[in-house]
Design a protein around this nucleic acid. Structure first.
Lengths: 338, 338
DNA sequence: ATTTTTTTCGGAAACGTTTCCGAAAATGAA
DNA sequence: TTCATTTTCGGAAACGTTTCCGAAAAAAAT
């Protein structure tokens, strides 16, 4: 399929290709009348610049890569929507990759994006990612990178975080104020900073209220629905039943709720639940799940802004960490009926 | 950031750039020893070809665009995963765009992808899309396109469909066999073929069983949860209460269920529900929703194969429509308790 | 009228890669 | 040994666009 080139326009108008180029690129050294003639003819001929020729000569791809761990729920898609909003406005194209919660795929995605000579990357780690050597190398090479949410503290880059600690603290307090006496925490994957922060918030809320947390109240889990199911089974089999559960993720909570219900427990009468990260389905399950909501779109927008700032920085770049806040959406799953 | 080019390798090895290029491209006219030397040196120097120079000279982008209506649920992400599997294997890059269920955004996405000189497009229409002139123009220009699921019959392209008719028929029969007497249908958006097919399946199942469907049993709706909520409110306010509801989408069903429950109706005792398109949350709500499951990953794979076939076709291309089948996942929401 | 300055254009080179074709060297056949 | 064939390499041109710089014409200043 033959595309119209600026050579075709030049020939049609008996002008040099450099004149055509000047018309398109708002140069000072072209007569307004000539420019208008060129723009009209180009439109008439259906001209569209060849992006590859432009990227080649400009030495800049204007591509941004996004690497997310999965995109089946709404969290990551919403972050992407926020990021794209900012990036499109700044003239970037966005190459989206997802890692199926798999480290190997994640590294392949990064490699693919580098092959596309992306100007920068926005990344959230899969829960499998423990080895960050590849990222260290990337950063030391000067590639602009912003991590969000699932980050690793050893990477000296800009980061967009959510105040996991604070909101885990508030969520736990909410349960304590509801007079729940035996609150369990289903944790996230141990390698992520956010798991530690959510756990710390949980523990510190107890400490503030002079409550003790026995080790048996901390159940290692993960973010998927099946992980919540498994944790719930473990609890039920232990016969050490809590009156409330704070889960590190909404899907974890939903999975656990399902199992408790299946075993005859009533929610929240027998076991109350609070989740984290406000999955779209939280309000639609029965009973609706209390959940900490993260500002997904804002996370995306912020990450994009930090990345652009890094790409366009001409001096010494200083990584920045921005921590966003959220809200606790209190619903039936955690309301003590007195 | 300075990238290594083949000129750098040529200089290092005292060879011509055409020799370096021949080494990388498996040409017959290079001595194996020379080739090995070049490949080793390239690796040692961290050489990576410039994709834009390649795309420019090859006159081929190896980019495929995907346009989906939204990506907050799991349906479209799963289709994408299936498509990417096939496309990556064939050496293509995939540019994903989503339209926020908005026609204007959809057209902007198509435009953006054309600017990127995509070799072809995989598209599912937003529910707002009524005017298909832009697509007709695209097709008449010879751009390879495959539509899936949400299609318009006037577009003479390859399509990947799901047998909406058949499965709407079976889903409705399932309700009839459960001895539901007053079955309502919450329809999808009128402009889509699939809405008509699902409706036809619904009607024909009644016809087979010599049951009449009064017009009042057909409630216009759409695919979003809020649409289901609205339809449910309308039904409740009409005081013409069905004993079963077949909804054109899972989210529609879930939204409607929520409202009926809120108004004191029991599911499925008072009103049973069947959804369509197997959203990930279907099995996790209470009660779990009976739903027609589509083979999402397979839809993506099939669409990708059809597109590649069209792109690589050297003769007269004949559009193909492939219709995939599914299954009915029967769960508690539709089981009559006798 | 002459000189200086400004405007506007064209041509050449660049970007990194691929391909084509000719040339030289090596190998095989007469 | 000479002639024919094969192998392997290098140089030039191409892809479509952008930028730089010089030249010519027009406008302004002297």
């Amino acid at each position: 399929m033959k595309h119209v080139t600026i050579k075709d326009i030049a020939k049609e108008l008996n002008l040099a290709v450099s004149t055509i180029s000047r018309a398109f690129n708002d140069k000072y050294d072209i007569r307004p009348e000539t420019k208008q003639t060129i723009l009209s003819k180009a439109k008439e001929m259906g001209y569209r610049p060849n992006p590859f020729a432009q990227k080649l000569i400009r030495q800049r791809s204007m591509n941004i890569g996004i690497v997310i761990p999965e995109f089946i729920g709404s969290f990551f898609p919403e972050v992407i929507i926020g990021a794209q909003e900012v990036l499109f406005k700044a003239g970037y194209q966005v190459l989206i990759t997802q890692s199926n919660e798999c480290y190997k795929t994640e590294i392949e995605n990064v490699e693919l994006l580098e092959q596309n000579m992306v100007d920068g990357l926005i990344i959230s780690l899969s829960h499998q990612t423990k080895n960050i050597d590849r990222y260290k190398e990337l950063v030391s090479r000067g590639t602009p990178v912003v991590f969000f949410n699932r980050v690793n503290d050893e990477l000296n880059t800009s980061k967009v975080l959510f105040d996991d600690y604070e909101w885990a603290f508030f969520a736990t307090e909410h349960l304590i104020y509801q007079n729940y006496k035996k609150i369990f925490h289903l944790t996230g994957p141990a390698n992520l900073s956010l798991t530690k922060n959510r756990l710390r918030g949980f523990l510190d809320a107890h400490k503030k209220h002079r409550l003790k947390v026995p080790d048996s109240h901390l159940i290692p889990s993960d973010f998927m629905l099946e992980d919540g199911e498994r944790a719930a089974m473990k609890i039920i089999e232990s016969e050490n039943i809590p009156d409330a559960i704070f889960a590190a993720g909404d899907l974890t909570a939903i999975g656990a709720m399902k199992i408790f219900k299946k075993h005859g427990y009533k929610i929240p009468e027998d076991v109350a639940f609070v989740g984290f990260s406000e999955h779209t389905i939280a309000q639609h399950i029965d009973p609706p799940l209390t959940s900490v909501a993260q500002p997904t779109f804002e996370i995306g927008r912020t990450a994009a802004k930090l990345l652009i700032a890094q790409i366009e920085n001409t001096g010494v770049f200083v990584p920045q960490t921005i921590t966003l806040s959220g809200q606790l959406n209190i619903r039936s799953s955690s309301m003590k009926l007195t």
